[in-house]
Design a protein around this nucleic acid. Structure first.
Lengths: 111, 111
DNA sequence: GCTTGACACATCGTCTGACTAGGCATAACT
DNA sequence: AGTTATGCCTAGTCAGACGATGTGTCAAGC
């Protein structure tokens, strides 16, 4: 599957989900699938690099947990990440409004 | 400037603008800027390859025009392009609704 | 005891596509 | 003559999503 166009907005979504509570990678995949009603079913090769990226840039911090002999890396927003989450949301709103404006011809202004 | 995240939706926008009437590359850049209230100010290295791509895949057709000694390549939607425009719009609606759903935590539905 | 499938993480390589940075040419204004 | 606006083009770079693949644990079924 995969529609290959999360494009740049994956970070915003990860930050948004983690705003509620810390979560591990696999859990994030499931939560994104749930919230998007199945639209986003991320491959693992998508999610883990994204999380590493966000941690490297200081927006997330992680710690290992062990549950039933299985290890998990649980990610949480840093202070910087909390700010970034807000910015990314605003950025998405602006972006999507602009696309909507282009796709929906404005009737006014002559013609 | 460029915010580097048109990401996959440029085709949809080009097709949408051309749905109104045929236009040339430079005109498309201006029209996108106008409709998006300045949000999208595309570089030429973005627009022309995109147009070539769309023409190669049969969604657009083009012809040369000469206005005041300046040549323009005017693009128009093909039949296939008209269908594609509808599909891309639907696809955008689905995509943006899904992102919105993820970014805006749904209170209901368990948990 | 072995296999299968869900859970859980990781990395490498590929491909797409936006963008940078150049180049070319004409017309109008200064 | 230089600059600005119009107009097109291509080669190269880079980010990022994705497929494939590998590791390991645990529970259930054969």
């Amino acid at each position: 599957m995969a529609q290959s166009e999360l494009q740049g907005h994956l970070d915003a979504m990860l930050l948004a989900v983690l705003q509620v509570s810390p979560l591990h990678g696999y859990g994030l995949v499931e939560e994104l699938r749930r919230r998007s009603n199945g639209e986003f079913d991320l491959a693992e090769g998508t999610i883990y690099p994204a999380l590493h990226r966000l941690e490297t840039s200081g927006l997330l911090s992680s710690r290992w947990e062990v549950v039933d002999g299985r290890r998990r890396r649980v990610y949480a927003l840093s202070t910087k990440g909390r700010e970034a989450a807000g910015e990314r949301l605003a950025s998405w709103r602006r972006f999507s409004a602009a696309i909507d404006a282009v796709l929906t011809p404005t009737p006014e202004t002559g013609r």
